[in-house]
Design a protein around this nucleic acid. Structure first.
Length: 884
RNA sequence: GCCGGAGUGGCGGAAUCGGCAGACGCGCUGGAUUCAAAAUCCAGUGGGAGUAAUCCCGUGAGGGUUCAAGUCCCUCCUCCGGUACCA
C-alpha cells in the first residue's frame, strides 16, 4: 500500500524546513571546532530574472548542483550560506506594462511570487530570510549609494587604484583658470562621468544600449535596428580597470573559456604611439626625450602594434569623425571629403561591418612626414578606422596588414615590404610578399628599413620604440578594445540616478551636478501615469511630477537626472547584500563581509560570461579600493551549466514547441526525480537534450530505493522485513565504502551524474542481498539526501531518527573495507586479452607472471614460443609478447 | 578568419598519471508474476562470423610513438558556443 509518493512527502518536508528555518545561515560562519579549520561555503546561484513564463527547466540545473554541494557541506560541518533573490528590473516587465497598462512593479511582484513558489517546490535549501529583489526600495537605496561611490572616485594611474575625489589634486594650470574650470576638470576625472559621444540608440526600444547589448548592429533584446547618434549619457570608467580586470583573472578557478572570453573582450594590446608631423602648416617641433601627453598642434598621432613596420608606411588614415578632418582637407578635396564624411555618419554599425566588406575612403589632399625616414605620405579618411579605438588614426602598412593591403590595392597606393617572413612561407609566396604582391602579417626580419635591416621583428619593436622616444616622437602604449560602460537608459523601470543638475536663476542647467545626500537615499521612482517610450531620447521620467523633478539640494534648485540605470546595476553587487540583507546603516557590515566573502562557488549560464561577470568584477574592485570589501575578486570558483535542449535536440523555445515545464514534471514524477534527472543527464557544463523517459528512469530508481527500505505490501508505513540490525558482511561493507568514497569525491568534482550511477549500483547490489543491514542503509540515505532531500528525510525518519537529516554527519569511508583478498589479473598476449588469473591482492610481479604463464589456455598459446617481452602491471594486467 | 569546447552502441553518457572500451540509465529482446494488464522482479543486449568453445572488427578520418592508445604526438574533417575592420 505505502508506495513511494512524492506528492505527499515533498510538501511535508518543505513545510518542515520552512517552519524550522532549517537552512537559516548564521550571521557569521561558526568558529573553528577544536583542532579543525573553520570551514565556510558561500554557494551562489545566478539569480533569475522573474519573467512571466515562470521557471524554465534550465534554472533548476545549476540550482540543484549548488544545492547538492550545500547540503553535503552542511553534513560535513561547514557553515553554509545559500541565498536566492530576483533580478527584477529590466525591459520585459516594462514592455509588458506598456502593453497592458499594469505597473511594472505589480507585474514584477506577481512573477516573483510564481518563481518563489516554484523554487520552494523543488526543495532547494535556501535561506529564504535573505531573499532580495533588485527592485526593493531598500536595495535600490544601496545600489544608488554604490553609484555615489563610483561618482566620488577617480583612478590614480600611478597607484593603479581608485581613490576618493577629496584626494584628487587639482593641477596648478587648471586651478589658475578658476573654480568653475577646476570643478569641470574634477568631474572629468570621476569613474562616473557624462559624455556626449555617439551612442547606440535603438528607436524601437526607446533607449540607448551598451556596446555589449548590440549584436550585429541589432539589439540583443528584440533584435531591433540600432543607429549611432550623439547623446548626453552617463559612462562608467571601466577602462581604467582594464589592466587589473585582465591580470587578476589569472588565478581564478574559472573555466578557461570564460577567462578567454573576458580577455578577448578587454582586448589588451601593446604597441607604440607615434607622432607624424603634418607636411604643411605650422608644426610643433618635437622635444628630444619628451613625448608629450597630448600631441602638439600640427601633429597627427597614431597607435600601432607594429612599430617595426614604420618604414613600410605608405599612407595614413584618420577616422571620419577625427577632429583633424577639416584641417587636413584641402580646397580641392572639400567636396568629396564632405560627401564621404556625411555618408559615414549615417552608417549604422551594421553597415560599417557586416555589409561593408569593401573598403571605402577618400584622400584629404594633405600629407604627413614619416618620422623614421622623412618620407611624405598621403593622409586618407576611411571608415575602417574607428574613432573610438587608439587615437582614431593609423599609419597604414599595406605589405603587412590585411586591411591596409586591401585598401591600398583598391586605391592604387604603393605597397612596400619591410619584413621578410623567411622560411615560414614557400619561396614563391615569400617572393610575392617582398615584391609587394602579397600581404604577410607574420613576424620575420626587417628589410628596407635603413640601419635596422636584419633586425628580428620582436627586437625591432623595442629598438624603434626607444629610438622614437629619444627623439620625443613616440612611446610605448597600451590599448584596450574594452570601452567605457554606457550606464544610462531612457527607460522607466530602473534605478534613478541619485544626482541632479543645478539650475541657474533662469531655470537653465549650469552644467554642474549635485549629488543627493546619502541620508536622502533612496531616490524612489515617481508615480507616472504614462511611462511609455515615445521614440525620442527624452526619458519617461522627464514627465514626472514637478515636486519630484525639481528638488532643492544644498539650497540650490536642481532638476533630477531622468535617465535610469541599466539592468546590470542591481546584479553587480547582489552577492554582497545577501550576506547582510537587512542592514540599514551600510550596504554590508564589514565584519560579515570579511567572514563570508569571497563567493566559493558560483554557478550560472554561460550567457553571462562577459557582461555580468565583467561588470560585477569592476564594481567589486572599486568597492575594494574604497575599502567597502576585503577581497579583490568576488567569485572564486565559477561554473557554467550547459544548456538543456528540447527532446528534439534543439534549443527550447515556445516557437519550436519543445519547452518542458517544471511544474508538470514535478506533478508527474516529483521534485526529487526532477532534481535527480537533471543531474543524471550528463556533465553539468555540457549541453544535453531532455528526455521524459530519462526522468521516468530516475523516478524508477527512487522507487527502488523506497522499496529497499519500505515494505510496500504492508498496510501501513513500515520497514521492509529484510532491514535489520545484522552486522554487514565484508562484501556489503565493501559496496558501502566504495559508494561513500565515490559519491563524496564526485560531489567535490561536481560530477553528479557519476555519483548517481554509483548509488544505483549500490541499490542494485542490496536488492539482491539476503539482509539489508541498517549499518549500510543509513549511510546510504545520507549520501542520497543532497540529491533527493525529501525522500532522504522521509526514509531517515522512518528509520527512527526524529531530527532532520540536514545536519547529520556525512559518512566517512574506510580504505580497509575496500581491500580484497584476491584480484583478477588480465593476461594479454601481444596486447590482446587472452585470459584471466586470480592472484592474492598483494602478489609480487614474479608471482603474477608465474600464475599467468601457468594458466592452461595461456600456457597453450605461448607453448614453444620465445617471449621477447613480459610486462607485469601489479593489480592490473600481464602482457606477454612472443617474437614475430 | 580568430578564440574556446566537443566528436565513443539505437539514445543520454562512463572510462583520459596510457593498462579488460561501453559503468549507470533509457530503449529493445526473452522470462517470472497475473485471468489479463499496469506495476514489479530476473536474464540478455557494440558490429560481424560460428551449433559452440572461440575468432575478427570497433571510440570522427588518416598517419605516428608504445609491449599496450578513446587517452600521447602530427595532419585533416564535422558540430556547438563566442567573436569579428580594435591598427
Amino acid at each position: 500500500m505505502p508506495r513511494y509518493n512524492p506528492a505527499t512527502i515533498e510538501p511535508k518536508w518543505q513545510a518542515y524546513w520552512d517552519e524550522h528555518k532549517t537552512f537559516a545561515a548564521p550571521r557569521l560562519p561558526s568558529p573553528a571546532a577544536k583542532g579543525k579549520a573553520a570551514k565556510k561555503l558561500y554557494a551562489l546561484d545566478m539569480f533569475p530574472y522573474p519573467s512571466g513564463d515562470g521557471l524554465h527547466v534550465g534554472h533548476p540545473e545549476g540550482y540543484t548542483a549548488t544545492d547538492i554541494v550545500c547540503r553535503a557541506r552542511r553534513m560535513q560541518g561547514y557553515s553554509v550560506i545559500h541565498p536566492m533573490g530576483f533580478d527584477a528590473f529590466g525591459l520585459p516587465a516594462e514592455e509588458h506594462a506598456i502593453k497592458t497598462g499594469e505597473h511594472p512593479r505589480v507585474q514584477t511582484e506577481k512573477n516573483i511570487t510564481t518563481f518563489r513558489r516554484q523554487l520552494k517546490m523543488l526543495g532547494f535549501s535556501y535561506d529564504w530570510d535573505r531573499e532580495i529583489a533588485t527592485t526593493d526600495v531598500d536595495y535600490v537605496r544601496w545600489t544608488q549609494w554604490i553609484f555615489l561611490q563610483l561618482y566620488d572616485t577617480w583612478f590614480d594611474k600611478a597607484q593603479q587604484k581608485g581613490r576618493p575625489i577629496a584626494e584628487l589634486e587639482i593641477p596648478a594650470d587648471i586651478g589658475a583658470l578658476g573654480t568653475d574650470a577646476a570643478r569641470r576638470w574634477v568631474d572629468e576625472q570621476r569613474l562616473a562621468y557624462q559624455s556626449s559621444a555617439p551612442v547606440n540608440w535603438c528607436p524601437a526600444l526607446g533607449t540607448v544600449l551598451a556596446n555589449e547589448e548590440v549584436i550585429d548592429g541589432k539589439s540583443e533584446r528584440g533584435d531591433h535596428p540600432v543607429e549611432r547618434r550623439p547623446l548626453r549619457q552617463w559612462m562608467l570608467r571601466i577602462t581604467a580597470y582594464g589592466d587589473r580586470l585582465e591580470k587578476e583573472l589569472e588565478p581564478l578557478d574559472w573555466p578557461e573559456s570564460v577567462k578567454a572570453l573576458q580577455r578577448n573582450w578587454i582586448g589588451r594590446s601593446t604597441g607604440a604611439e607615434v607622432d607624424f608631423r603634418l607636411a604643411a602648416g605650422t608644426n610643433g617641433e618635437a622635444v628630444a626625450g619628451k613625448f608629450p601627453e597630448k600631441p602638439a598642434d600640427g601633429v597627427l598621432r597614431v597607435y600601432t602594434t607594429r612599430p617595426d613596420t614604420l618604414f613600410g608606411a605608405t599612407y595614413m588614415v584618420i577616422a571620419p569623425e577625427h577632429p583633424y578632418v577639416d584641417r587636413l582637407t584641402t580646397a580641392a578635396q572639400t567636396e568629396p571629403v564632405a560627401t564621404y564624411v556625411k555618408a559615414a555618419s549615417f552608417k549604422s554599425d551594421l553597415d560599417r561591418t557586416e555589409l561593408a566588406k569593401d573598403k571605402t575612403g577618400v584622400f584629404t589632399g594633405s600629407y604627413a612626414i614619416n618620422p623614421v625616414n622623412g618620407e611624405k605620405i598621403p593622409i586618407w579618411i576611411a571608415d575602417y578606422v574607428l574613432i573610438s579605438y587608439g587615437t582614431g588614426a593609423i599609419m597604414a602598412v599595406p605589405a603587412h596588414d590585411e586591411r591596409d593591403f586591401e585598401f591600398a590595392q583598391k586605391f592604387g597606393i604603393a605597397i612596400k615590404a619591410v619584413v621578410d617572413p623567411g622560411e615560414k612561407l614557400s619561396a614563391a609566396e615569400r617572393d610575392a610578399v617582398l615584391a609587394g604582391k602579397r600581404v604577410s602579417p607574420e613576424a620575420g626580419v626587417a628589410v628596407n628599413s635603413g640601419a635596422f635591416d636584419g633586425t628580428p621583428t620582436a627586437e625591432f619593436k623595442q629598438k624603434i620604440t626607444a629610438w622614437l622616444a629619444e627623439r620625443g616622437v613616440g612611446g610605448e602604449a597600451v590599448n584596450y578594445k574594452l570601452r567605457d560602460w554606457l550606464f544610462s537608459r531612457q527607460r522607466f523601470w530602473g534605478e534613478p540616478f541619485p544626482l541632479a543638475h543645478e539650475l541657474d536663476a533662469a531655470g537653465k542647467p549650469t552644467g554642474f551636478l549635485r549629488t543627493v545626500p546619502e541620508t536622502d537615499l533612496p531616490v524612489d521612482l515617481p508615480h507616472l501615469e504614462d511611462f511609455k517610450p515615445h521614440g525620442r531620447p527624452e526619458p519617461p521620467l522627464d514627465k514626472a511630477p514637478e515636486e519630484w523633478l525639481y528638488p532643492t539640494i544644498d539650497g540650490v534648485r536642481c532638476k533630477r537626472e531622468t535617465n535610469t540605470m541599466p539592468q546590470w546595476a542591481g546584479s553587480c553587487w547582489y552577492y554582497l547584500r545577501f550576506l547582510d540583507p537587512k542592514n540599514d546603516a551600510a550596504p554590508i557590515d564589514p565584519e560579515v563581509e570579511r567572514a563570508w566573502m569571497p563567493v566559493d562557488l558560483y554557478i550560472g549560464g554561460a550567457e553571462h560570461a562577459v557582461l555580468h561577470l565583467l561588470y560585477a568584477r569592476f564594481w567589486h574592485k572599486v568597492l575594494y579600493d574604497r575599502g567597502v570589501v576585503s577581497t579583490p575578486e568576488p567569485f572564486h570558483k565559477l561554473v557554467n551549466q550547459g544548456m538543456i535542449l528540447g527532446e528534439n535536440g534543439e534549443k527550447m523555445s515556445k516557437s519550436r514547441g519543445n519547452v518542458v515545464n517544471p511544474d508538470e514534471v514535478v506533478s508527474e514524477y516529483g521534485a526529487d526525480s526532477l532534481r535527480l534527472y537533471e543531474m543524471f543527464m550528463g556533465p553539468l557544463p555540457d549541453s544535453k537534450p531532455w528526455s521524459m523517459e530519462g526522468v521516468s528512469g530516475v523516478a524508477n530508481f527512487l522507487g527502488r530505493v523506497w522499496r529497499l527500505i519500505v515494505d510496500e505490501r504492508a498496510d501501513e508505513l513500515k520497514l521492509h522485513e529484510l532491514v535489520s540490525d545484522t552486522p554487514p558482511t565484508a562484501d556489503q561493507l565493501r559496496m558501502l565504502h566504495a559508494t561513500i568514497k565515490a559519491v563524496t569525491e564526485d560531489i567535490d568534482k561536481l560530477s553528479f551524474n557519476t555519483a548517481i550511477a554509483r548509488m544505483m549500483e549500490f541499490v542494485n547490489f542490496f536488492n539482491k542481498e539476503a539482509t539489508r543491514p541498517r549499518a549500510c542503509l543509513e549511510p546510504f540515505i545520507k549520501l542520497l539526501s543532497p540529491f533527493a532531500p525529501h525522500l532522504g528525510e522521509e526514509l531517515w525518519q522512518l528509520l527512527g531518527h526524529p531530527q532532520t537529516l540536514a545536519y547529520a554527519d556525512w559518512p566517512d569511508f574506510d580504505e580497509a573495507h575496500l581491500r580484497r583478498e584476491t584480484v583478477d589479473i588480465v593476461v594479454q598476449i601481444a596486447g590482446k586479452v587472452r585470459g584471466k588469473v586470480t592472484v592474492p591482492a598483494d602478489a609480487d610481479q614474479a608471482t603474477i607472471l608465474a600464475a599467468a604463464k601457468a594458466e592452461p589456455k595461456i600456457a597453450e598459446l605461448i607453448a614453444g614460443k620465445q617471449l621477447v617481452k613480459e610486462i607485469v602491471v601489479p593489480g592490473r594486467l600481464v602482457n606477454l609478447v612472443p617474437r614475430g
